[in-house]
Computed example of a mutant assay.
Amino acid sequence: MEKLKLRHEIKHEISISDYIALRNRLKFIAQKDSNTDERGRYRIRSLYFDNADDKALKEKILGLNNREKFRIRYYNGDIRYIKLEKKGKINGLCYKRYTPLTVGQCEQIINGDIKWMRFSENSLLVELYAKMNFQQLRPRTLVDYIREPYIYKPGNVRVTFDSGITTGLNSKELFNQQTAAMNSHAVKKIIMEVKFDEFLPEIIRDIIQLGQRQNSAFSKYAACRIFG
């Protein structure tokens, strides 16, 4: 298995006025993500996995230092590039592993046809197979939101603003843009996430004024599970 790259992650729930002020500061020193639209944003759709005992949800709510969750994710409605992701924490530091999926593979996983993963040469697919088999992980909740990302190369810093968070409740229709998030409840939050490697450059720390905000354990998955 590949060596995990551990990163720091800080989250803050912020107001609209905070968002506007922070965005106006960041745009002078940080780069936009090349995958964004003309407004500097992109839409993310994720299908999160959990089991009947709500393992992933409970680990998040309890704030366990070592935890994990699986999701299938794609961007801007473009199904040419879909990822299976495993996001986890080890002693409070974050890591992410991912592998590409096809539409057909996604549909097989959603429909419970998972035997093919057992014999895959991809370790992440084998791990998901094992956990769907032995932990009874299943696709559980759709989550949509808009992300506005900023990149600052020193320290490998990524600052993102997530808004317009909606949920498809228990819908598994990952590729149906009409029935899931459009008719769901909205979570009215703006979430700033700051991710970095070993250090956070002083210029970024000053801009986002971390010392004046309380860190948040906000989880888009957990927030959307409130509704079902």
Rank of each mutant, 00 (worst) to 15 (best):
K5H: 08
K5Q: 08
L6Q: 05
L6C: 05
H8M: 06
S15D: 06
S17A: 12
Y19W: 10
N24V: 02
R25G: 09
R25Q: 12
L26R: 04
L26Q: 02
F28T: 13
I29H: 01
A30E: 00
Q31V: 08
K32E: 14
K32A: 15
K32G: 13
D37F: 04
R39D: 09
Y42I: 01
R43E: 13
R45L: 14
R45H: 12
S46W: 02
L47R: 14
Y48I: 11
F49I: 04
N51E: 05
K55C: 03
K55D: 14
A56K: 05
K58F: 11
K58M: 13
K60G: 01
K60T: 12
I61M: 15
L62D: 14
L64N: 10
L64G: 00
L64K: 12
N66D: 15
N66V: 03
R67S: 05
R67G: 02
F70A: 03
F70E: 02
R71C: 01
R71A: 01
R73L: 05
Y75I: 03
N76L: 12
G77N: 11
I79H: 10
I82E: 01
K83R: 11
E85P: 02
K87I: 01
K87N: 00
G88N: 05
K89E: 01
N91V: 06
L93N: 08
Y98A: 11
Y98S: 15
Y98V: 02
Y98I: 03
T99C: 09
T99Q: 04
T99D: 00
L101N: 04
T102F: 05
T102S: 14
V103T: 15
Q105N: 06
Q105A: 13
C106A: 07
E107C: 02
K115C: 07
M117C: 04
F119M: 07
S123E: 15
L124S: 02
L124P: 01
L125H: 06
V126W: 05
E127D: 13
Y129Q: 01
K131Q: 15
M132D: 03
M132K: 04
N133S: 14
N133C: 10
F134A: 09
Q136I: 04
R138M: 07
R138I: 05
R140A: 11
R140T: 11
L142E: 04
E148T: 08
P149T: 09
I151Q: 11
I151W: 11
I151H: 13
K153M: 10
P154H: 08
G155L: 06
V157N: 05
V157M: 02
T160K: 03
F161L: 03
D162G: 08
S163A: 09
G164C: 07
T166W: 07
G168H: 06
K172N: 14
E173L: 08
L174K: 10
L174A: 07
L174V: 09
F175L: 03
Q178M: 08
A180K: 08
A180Q: 12
M182C: 03
H185D: 10
H185T: 10
H185K: 12
A186H: 06
A186G: 01
A186K: 14
V187A: 11
K188E: 13
E193Q: 11
E193P: 06
V194P: 00
K195L: 04
K195I: 06
F196L: 04
F196S: 01
D197E: 15
E198V: 04
I203D: 04
I203R: 14
I204N: 02
I204T: 03
R205Y: 11
Q209A: 13
Q212D: 15
N215Q: 12
A217V: 07
A222K: 07
A222N: 05
C224M: 09
R225G: 00
G228H: 11
